[in-house]
Design a protein around this nucleic acid. Sequence first.
DNA 1: GCTTATTATGTCTATAGGTGAATATTCCTG
DNA 2: CAGGAATATTCACCTATAGACATAATAAGC
Lengths: 212, 212
Amino acid sequence: MSLSYAILAALFNQPCSGYDLVKRFNKSVECFWSASHQQIYKALAKLEEEGHVSSEKIEQENRPNKKLYTVTDSGRQDLQQWIGETETEIVPLKSDLLVKLSAGHTVPTETLINALDTYYQQHRDKLKSYQAVSKQYAQVPELSRESQFQYLALRAGIRQQLAWVAWCEEAMGFLGQPVKQPVIKPGAQPAAVRESSRESFRESLRESSSAS
Amino acid sequence: MSLSYAILAALFNQPCSGYDLVKRFNKSVECFWSASHQQIYKALAKLEEEGHVSSEKIEQENRPNKKLYTVTDSGRQDLQQWIGETETEIVPLKSDLLVKLSAGHTVPTETLINALDTYYQQHRDKLKSYQAVSKQYAQVPELSRESQFQYLALRAGIRQQLAWVAWCEEAMGFLGQPVKQPVIKPGAQPAAVRESSRESFRESLRESSSAS
DNA sequence: GCTTATTATGTCTATAGGTGAATATTCCTG
DNA sequence: CAGGAATATTCACCTATAGACATAATAAGC
């Protein structure tokens, strides 16, 4: 359901081809909605069938022809109506790693550390890539209102990754492993990271017990 | 795929009936894997067919009979093997709200504030409920290794919710709305929340631009 | 005796979400 | 001109999930 709207939103901001859309999803939309190219093409076909987008064949000289997709009036209305619906469910978390951890006592600690390390690296990479996009926004002197909204969505993605990175460090501390390298240069990070990275498993237990 | 393993892990920690499993998923497992009762019953049936769990009919006096599910040797091996696999993909984020926001300029700000507020409340509720479970852990003088792992998984859930709550506040600040009430009593919160709540949209932009 | 809630276990169906493989064109390099 | 990379798209299939429906026992209140 939401994939269609994610596509409508992206196309509304900037009409483009399916292929370009895939690239945009991989670059930044991914931080709030991920999808494979097959899914995107399928959803585009359905949206066109429903009349929410229209396509125009563009003849290209140096490369295969492409279809330029544009949101129709009906598509825009549908999108706006959906945004207005308050039938809002928050994202249910689904993490392989946490499932593994919840049965962690059944396997050697080393196994868990390996899994954790893989995750840690991936989250750090994602964070880095989102922060790179964030930097691009920051370099524009005056962001359009449109861009500001997109930046705000990106901020959520960054906060999610920060939370994961901080948790990985906490988990590594618990599993008795030193953190291999500092997250990112100090000073370039919002205070939240440094604070939360410092927080240990033990400390958090004590805090919970003192909470009212 | 992972639902089966989430069930195996839960049953391995504590054998129970399908009904109880549903309740456990709603209570705390949900913070790392969510599933409906239909999915759980279906997955249980499949696991039994495959021989990974066995069921025993329990006659009950005061209520309908139930089936007590236990993980078999084959199930335990399967679970342990899966935990060892390093084919680990981090959770792709999928958020309706962020999709809505990315096209936020197409609707009145009030619409967005409404949507945001609904999310804010839900994340705060989730956070509160996870923190309540966390408190239960903290009250046990000496946690078993088993429980420590589960607590660590819960910590990830809490951090996720904290990140969402903090972002909601940042977003509200951007949309020009005052935060209606403080997150939770100060002092009961890890420093990370207070820090990150304070961080504004504008400040974050400046930080991004100064980052190397 | 009737209604409603809770415990307990499922099935069916439609649709959304997701993967793997295949296809075709054009460009660039050796 | 052969082979690979980038562009651009589609098919077939499978799983996941939501929503509705079905069943049946007990317990509590009116």
